[in-house]
Design a protein around this nucleic acid. Structure first.
Lengths: 125, 125
DNA sequence: CGGGATCCTGTTGGATACTG
DNA sequence: CAGTATCCAACAGGATCCCG
């Protein structure tokens, strides 16, 4: 299968597949939460501490959507004070590989991209 | 390298790598434009016709940012009426592979995700 | 401890009209 | 044809306060 044929996976159905996944992981925190949970079950507060800058509200929302999508499992313990643990599901773990591929791309290409931006900005205003 | 070690690529530097790439391609149209340009040099209007729903304004903005990032090359012909052609650069082409991997993930996992969402919504309100 | 409710801001992106 | 300029609605996301 050629690269050109494979991009039909992206364009297919008017781009609804790509749109769906970007709605899911294209936001500010989702991939970071998934990556942080990789290989480790974790409590809410610990998760928050490991993701610098995330607000309580956004962590709650992010983790809730991940739970709804079935990528993260949420386990509540009937204790006082409450204890809630999060972990990736099997489905959630399958996201790691393509996400890492994307991060690798970002790290590899970043120098070239920044150079291009500087050139562009120098040519324009 | 284990999956766990690889997720450091995502979390590394407080997630700045992933944040950078998502700022770049996490928007509504960028990946669709890149996928549409895969293997084909194209004029502005044709590009717009092949991406259903995109407005003139958003196509302009998207393609401009891609040009600034060095992922797309923009060639203006000194003619009347004007003719402008767009094509992926070598750097731009390198994005195809991880993007397709992500689309494949989306298509594979979508049934499971939708089932999970239905279950979740049924349990809640 | 792990949230929910509320308020407020900046940004994204659509619609429309105009132009070299 | 390939934009630019302007206006506007929707939403993402931060700050803050409250609660079982």
């Amino acid at each position: 299968m050629s690269s050109y044929e494979r991009t039909c996976l992206i364009r297919g159905d008017g781009g609804r597949a790509i749109r769906g996944i970007l709605d899911r992981i294209g936001d500010k925190w989702t991939l970071l939460v998934v990556a942080t949970l990789d290989g480790e079950r974790m409590r809410f507060t610990e998760l928050q501490q490991r993701i610098p800058g995330i607000s309580q509200r956004m962590l709650t929302r992010t983790v809730r959507q991940l739970e709804r999508d079935g990528l993260v499992e949420r386990q509540v313990f009937a204790e006082v004070p409450p204890r809630v643990e999060y972990a990736l599901t099997d489905t959630g773990r399958t996201l790691i590989k393509p996400a890492v591929a994307l991060a690798e791309w970002a790290i590899e290409q970043n120098p070239a991209i920044e150079r291009s931006q500087d050139d562009y900005d120098a040519r324009q205003g």
